[in-house]
Amino acid sequence: MSVLEVDAVSIHFGGVKALREVSLRAGEWEIVGIIGPNGAGKTTLFNCVTGFYQPTHGQVRYRGRDISRMPVHQRTALGIGRTFQNVGLVKGTTVLENLMTAQHLQVDYDPWLGIAGSPASFAEERRVRERGDQILGLLDLDHVRHERVADLPYGVLKRVEIAAVLATDPDLLLLDEPGSGMGPEEAHELGDTLLTLRKEFGLTIVMIDHHVPLVTRVSDYVYCLNFGEVLAEGNPDVVRHHPEVVRAYMGEDAAPGPDDTAVIEPAAAAGSGGRG
């Protein structure tokens, strides 16, 4: 069973059709990449999966269960975690505080008992703090644990954000441009991190990124979106050399490379494609 199935999802904002019949699948332990020019609808697709938007048509299924109408926090409870395009952290607090906030669902006492200051809540707070420290250690972020989020540089925040989303204990991780603002070397390192995380935490990852080398290196399967539609999908190398993809990125006049005779599954075949 697929972890995530996006089934012919369309979303309209007034007259604007931000997504048109987009279908996407992510299997257990897979890393799925989504590429596409700006405004292609990649983040909108994420918002449909995490619940910020509700699709006009179509269904989002998580492990076979229709979650299209479920509120965001319940999807988090199911194990869907996401990062944001421009850093989704609580900026007024410290890094460790963020990690503790992100463990909200695992904190094992009633909020009212917490306010009353029950002994159990003190013990639980200590556990939550320790686990936050451990996740920070895992991502080499010990040195910033007491820094205020607002005072940290962008690149570090991107890592902190991954740490925070891991603290929500996800099964499916949706990363919105985790490599933005990173140079080629950092992006390479990020790729290693993602592969290790998948192994350590048993994650399924869907990531949006513009670093094509990063996406093609770590992804098992890649989708290319343009104008709210799946332009191409397939193995990373196939999608990379797809003439439509090249045209979408480079413009109409882009000279067709020698590779574009390679067989590509066209968008029309979406969903029926034979995948491992």
Partner: peptide
């Protein structure tokens, strides 16, 4: 004091600043 140092207070701090991030942390 206990409110600010427990689950509830952290949830409030998060949702005051950014309800979207708060809900993606699983906060109702």
């Amino acid at each position: 004091w206990r409110l600010t140092r427990s689950k509830g207070g952290r949830a409030l701090a998060a949702l005051r600043e950014n309800p979207r991030v708060a809900s993606s942390y699983g906060i109702n």
